Simulated assay, not measured.
Amino acid sequence: MSTLAILTAAGSGTRLGRDLPKALVQVDGVPLVLHAARRLAASGVVDELVVTAPPGATAGVRDLLAADPLVGLPLEVVDGGATRQASVAAGLAHAGADVDVVLVHDAARPFAPAALVRRVVAAVRAGHPAVVPGLPVVDTIKTVSRGEHQTAGAHASEAATAAVEPVTGTPERAVLRAVQTPQGFDRDLLVRAHAAGAARAGADHLAATDDAGLVEALGERVVVVAGDEAAMKITTERDMHLAALYAGRVA
Rank of each mutant, 00 (worst) to 15 (best):
V99R: 07
V99F: 01
V99Y: 03
D100A: 06
D100C: 05
V101K: 02
V101L: 02
V102S: 02
V102K: 00
L103H: 06
L103C: 10
H105A: 03
D106K: 14
A107W: 04
A107S: 12
A108T: 02
A108I: 00
A108G: 08
R109D: 03
F111A: 06
F111V: 07
A112Q: 01
A114K: 13
A115V: 15
L116D: 04
L116H: 05
V117I: 09
V117G: 02
R118I: 08
R119P: 09
V120G: 07
V121L: 03
V121M: 04
A123T: 05
R125L: 12
R125E: 12
A126S: 15
A126M: 08
A126H: 09
H128F: 09
H128R: 14
P129A: 12
A130I: 00
A130Q: 01
A130L: 02
A130H: 02
V131A: 07
V132L: 02
V132W: 00
V132A: 10
L135Q: 15
P136W: 11
P136Q: 06
V138H: 08
T140A: 05
T140H: 05
T140E: 07
T140F: 04
I141W: 05
K142S: 14
T143D: 06
V144S: 09
S145M: 05
R146C: 04
R146Y: 13
G147V: 13
G147N: 12
E148T: 13
T151H: 15
H155T: 13
A156N: 09
E158M: 11
A159F: 13
A159V: 13
A159W: 13
A160V: 05
T161K: 12
T161D: 11
A162D: 06
A163T: 12
A163G: 05
V164G: 12
E165R: 09
P166D: 03
V167Q: 05
T170D: 10
T170Y: 15
P171F: 10
P171A: 11
R173E: 14
A174D: 14
L176K: 05
R177S: 15
A178F: 06
A178K: 12
V179K: 06
V179E: 09
V179P: 04
V179T: 14
Q180F: 00
T181N: 06
P182I: 01
Q183E: 15
G184I: 13
F185G: 03
D186S: 01
D188F: 00
D188W: 00
L189C: 07
V191P: 03
V191R: 15
V191Q: 12
